[in-house]
Nucleic acid binder design. Sequence first.
DNA 1: CCTTGAAAACCGACCGGTTGGTTTGGTAAT
DNA 2: ATTACCAAACCAACCGGTCGGTTTTCAAGG
Lengths: 199, 199
Amino acid sequence: MNAVTLSEDNRRKLLEIAAEEMLEKGFQATSIGDILTKSGLSKGALYHHFPSKLTLGYAVFEEIFVADCAHRWEPALSDPDPISGISKLLREQVAEMTDEMVRLGCPINNFGQEMSPIDEGFRQRINREINHWRDELEAAFKRGQAAGNMKTEIDTRQVATFFVASIEGAIGIAKNAQDRALLETCAEALIGYLEGLRP
Amino acid sequence: MNAVTLSEDNRRKLLEIAAEEMLEKGFQATSIGDILTKSGLSKGALYHHFPSKLTLGYAVFEEIFVADCAHRWEPALSDPDPISGISKLLREQVAEMTDEMVRLGCPINNFGQEMSPIDEGFRQRINREINHWRDELEAAFKRGQAAGNMKTEIDTRQVATFFVASIEGAIGIAKNAQDRALLETCAEALIGYLEGLRP
DNA sequence: CCTTGAAAACCGACCGGTTGGTTTGGTAAT
DNA sequence: ATTACCAAACCAACCGGTCGGTTTTCAAGG
């Protein structure tokens, strides 16, 4: 094993365990000591790779959470009929969610709800990701309009914003209730809403 | 000033300052010491009224957060036309929200997102409140159906669930973005959705 | 009206443990 | 010899919570 890849492995290990802890307990309540115990590495190793807990949190967000979530919607967004493409993917995503994922909620939104009011760095990163998702949705809706699959009079930006908010909200209340049925219910309602946007 | 009411005042002061801190920083990151400093009271006083930080958190949730939020929707729910009643109240609520409220989000949902995965006591209290809200909405929709103001074929439970989720989601992304316009956008989309449920 | 006594309310020093972070020292690859 | 990497000891600050003691309150007894 090459030394540089070994070092990279340790960094990755710290990152992944930190992600687990932060997803379960939140950023602030996550203990550096717990991460070290679970990883079997030392404090020196961690602070070699990450200068502070905050930068570790940023790295977890960008290299784990965003990397896992960001490209999940792309297949549906290229469909010339975005309503059916999105509906199909939505049902898939809900079906694929494990009970653990229902219990823990959306990693990106979790960080947002915890950290947005108290750390601007987190807030900007989270906001950028949400906006990116929304922009992609809006572009898909615009293509749907051009293809004649959606009403031309609807405000695509409004629909995209509402869609993102509703998904995050649905994940949130399902997390509170620890009940995936709430997710399915909201998904069906959201699909019904989208279907109402056809010409 | 009566002694029992003076004591009650101190309890209330601790409760309100704890609520502020917990709303801003979350439950876990809130320091007992900070609450004492801000209140000017002593540790003995706090632990006289509340046996632990956890029970203080429960009390904040029930006596401050729930008390402030719970009865906010009642006027709209008695309207025989729930769609117009709820739409009207929704616009009012959004307009009345201060920038501070946009920045801090929904107290109940904040606690839920932070504490649901790690404390069952919080989870149950929050879930009970969400269910209560949803049940009231559903009852209003049923009355709307009976009065001929809503389609009879719609699933009122689904609509109520989706409504709650969307509101919480909208508050959440507006908090991330620190932008009340997102709230207004989602409110209008939600009203459009409700209008589509008329016969 | 005054005294007494017990309970309620409150205070703040103190406790063990944990926090994020630093320092120092050594090892292995280049 | 230099650089990258990591381990372990260490640090001051802070955490929630406890505890012995003090003050305040208020009813009962004289």
